Amino acid sequence: AGLEKQLAIELKVKQGAENMIQTYSNGSTKDRKLLLTAQQMLQDSKTKIDIIRMQLRRALQ
């Protein structure tokens, strides 16, 4: 149950990062740093999601 909860949280983080990227990508240059931060968050989240999914698969075997 813990892994499913972690996965749900990470999927929400990923969605939030995608929303932030959309918001900041057509903003001013001061938003550039926020855009880069959001892109890093998205990448980190995708990595965590992959790891959690692997752990889930392993647990189900």
Rank of each mutant, 00 (worst) to 15 (best):
1 A>E: 15
1 A>P: 01
1 A>W: 05
2 G>F: 10
2 G>I: 04
2 G>Q: 13
3 L>A: 07
3 L>Q: 14
3 L>Y: 06
4 E>C: 02
4 E>W: 14
4 E>P: 05
5 K>S: 08
5 K>I: 03
5 K>H: 13
6 Q>L: 12
6 Q>F: 08
6 Q>D: 06
7 L>W: 00
7 L>M: 11
8 A>D: 10
8 A>S: 12
8 A>E: 10
8 A>P: 05
9 I>E: 15
9 I>Q: 13
9 I>D: 12
10 E>A: 07
10 E>Q: 12
10 E>S: 06
11 L>D: 08
11 L>T: 13
11 L>W: 03
11 L>I: 04
11 L>P: 12
12 K>V: 01
12 K>M: 05
12 K>E: 11
12 K>H: 10
13 V>P: 04
13 V>R: 15
13 V>S: 08
13 V>G: 11
14 K>R: 06
14 K>E: 09
14 K>G: 04
14 K>F: 09
14 K>Y: 08
15 Q>K: 05
16 G>L: 13
16 G>D: 11
16 G>A: 14
16 G>Q: 15
17 A>L: 15
17 A>D: 05
17 A>Y: 08
17 A>W: 13
17 A>R: 08
18 E>K: 10
18 E>I: 05
18 E>M: 04
19 N>C: 06
19 N>Y: 02
19 N>E: 13
20 M>N: 03
20 M>G: 04
21 I>P: 12
21 I>S: 11
21 I>R: 13
21 I>V: 11
21 I>Y: 04
21 I>W: 11
22 Q>M: 07
22 Q>H: 07
22 Q>F: 04
22 Q>D: 11
22 Q>A: 10
22 Q>G: 13
23 T>K: 15
24 Y>I: 09
25 S>W: 02
25 S>F: 02
25 S>C: 04
25 S>A: 11
26 N>D: 12
26 N>V: 07
26 N>E: 09
26 N>M: 05
26 N>P: 04
26 N>W: 01
26 N>A: 11
27 G>E: 11
27 G>D: 09
27 G>K: 13
28 S>M: 05
28 S>D: 03
28 S>W: 03
28 S>G: 10
28 S>Y: 01
29 T>I: 06
29 T>W: 10
29 T>L: 06
29 T>H: 13
29 T>P: 10
29 T>Q: 04
30 K>C: 02
30 K>N: 13
30 K>E: 02
31 D>E: 09
31 D>V: 15
31 D>G: 15
32 R>V: 03
32 R>L: 03
33 K>F: 02
33 K>I: 00
33 K>E: 04
34 L>Y: 01
34 L>F: 12
35 L>E: 00
35 L>P: 00
35 L>R: 07
35 L>I: 05
36 L>I: 11
36 L>V: 09
36 L>D: 13
36 L>A: 14
36 L>Y: 09
37 T>H: 14
37 T>V: 10
37 T>L: 12
37 T>I: 12
38 A>Y: 01
38 A>P: 00
38 A>S: 01
39 Q>E: 02
40 Q>N: 09
40 Q>D: 00
40 Q>W: 00
40 Q>S: 04
41 M>D: 04
41 M>G: 00
41 M>P: 00
42 L>A: 01
42 L>C: 02
42 L>E: 02
42 L>P: 01
42 L>T: 00
43 Q>I: 04
43 Q>E: 05
43 Q>Y: 03
43 Q>R: 14
43 Q>M: 11
44 D>V: 12
44 D>S: 15
45 S>F: 15
45 S>A: 15
45 S>K: 02
46 K>R: 07
46 K>E: 02
47 T>G: 12
47 T>H: 09
47 T>L: 08
47 T>M: 10
48 K>D: 00
48 K>W: 03
48 K>M: 04
48 K>E: 00
48 K>L: 03
48 K>G: 00
48 K>Y: 01
48 K>F: 05
49 I>K: 03
49 I>H: 00
49 I>L: 10
49 I>T: 00
49 I>V: 05
49 I>A: 01
49 I>C: 01
50 D>N: 12
50 D>A: 14
50 D>C: 08
50 D>Q: 08
51 I>H: 14
51 I>F: 08
51 I>G: 15
51 I>W: 15
51 I>M: 12
52 I>M: 10
52 I>V: 05
52 I>Q: 00
52 I>K: 04
52 I>E: 15
53 R>W: 14
53 R>Q: 09
54 M>W: 06
54 M>V: 08
54 M>A: 14
54 M>L: 12
55 Q>L: 01
55 Q>A: 08
56 L>H: 01
56 L>V: 09
56 L>D: 03
56 L>F: 09
56 L>T: 02
57 R>K: 13
57 R>Y: 03
57 R>V: 05
57 R>P: 01
58 R>G: 11
58 R>F: 06
58 R>Y: 05
59 A>I: 06
59 A>E: 09
59 A>L: 11
59 A>D: 10
59 A>V: 11
59 A>S: 11
59 A>C: 13
59 A>H: 10
60 L>C: 10
60 L>V: 06
60 L>P: 08
60 L>T: 12
